[in-house]
Design a protein around this nucleic acid. Structure first.
Lengths: 158, 158
DNA sequence: TTACTTTGGTTGATCCGTCAACAAAAAAGT
DNA sequence: ACTTTTTTGTTGACGGATCAACCAAAGTAA
């Protein structure tokens, strides 16, 4: 019953209510704000911030390991790392086990810069999560996982 | 209680669980898929599709009216419309009441092209929405609205 | 009227995300 | 051993998104 109603209402669904569009607008808004906070507090980009977060939670890493965990684009990541090494924010040492790879890690300066941004980003994250009830948070993440899965399904069907 | 637990767990939250990052990945995945479907079925872009959807649900429109309702970038929209007029997908007539504005509408060809894509897009939308329960759908949209609002709040505080 | 502000639309600059091509090294298959 | 395939990382090209500058018309206020 809920489904049949759904099927019909889709016919005239305005753009503003479509899932992809809403996610798209939310994404634009949230990442623009994150970028601003990062630029103002630490002068780094969102991509650089993400590299820092990965280093903090997992320790020294190779770019490939970051790609595996995050599905970030390896080209984009490569450029971000180059910029960070250049700016003295991270160190890059050749891997012992793999001649192709290099292991990146915080430099002292990088850690300082990271700590400039972290309280702002953490407070924002807290605010974002606390705007929802626990049930809403679970529903949101659950719904995002389901959407993710359906996109994969549709992909496989083609 | 739930909140204090939340506050602490944020300290070591991996990137993969952060809200902005998750929304970002979901956005990338969903819009890439939508773009593919649109390209394959009708040879149009996501932006062009959105213009079509606006015309279908609201009838003839000026670009400014679209911007007001969707918050799409007016520059981006201007270029999309130029391309669509050029491709014969929409008509552009000078507004009677405002010498600056022009009113756009479907051409016959545009309507045909739109109808090529619509069943695919509608089916996808249905599948996306049906992957969730009614409660989850409400939670998702509610959560997105709340996140949207918090971003605005944070913006205002700066 | 005449000045000032707001709105509608176009354009250019710039940045970000995505994709494909490529070289070097490693791993797997024979 | 040697050939083939996979993985790692860099680079170039391209399209999309964002932002600011700008012009023309409308609206507002004096």
């Amino acid at each position: 019953m809920a489904d049949s109603m759904l099927d019909e209402s889709i016919l005239d669904m305005p753009l503003e209510q479509m899932v992809t569009f809403r996610v798209s607008r939310l994404h634009a808004k949230m990442s623009a704000q994150a970028s601003n906070i990062l630029k103002n507090s630490a002068g780094i980009s969102l991509m650089q911030w993400r590299v820092f977060v990965m280093l903090e939670t997992h320790g020294k890493l190779t770019p490939a390991a970051i790609v595996r965990r995050t599905e970030l684009d390896k080209g984009q990541l490569s450029r971000a790392i180059k910029g960070m090494v250049n700016a003295g924010l991270i160190s890059s040492a050749p891997s012992e086990s793999d001649q192709r790879a290099h292991v990146i890690d915080f430099t002292e300066k990088g850690l300082e810069v990271f700590h400039l941004a972290r309280p702002h980003m953490r407070q924002r994250q807290t605010r974002l999560l606390n705007s929802m009830t626990a049930a809403e948070r679970e529903a949101l993440f659950g719904a995002m996982e389901k959407l993710d899965a359906v996109v994969d399904e549709l992909e496989a069907e083609q």
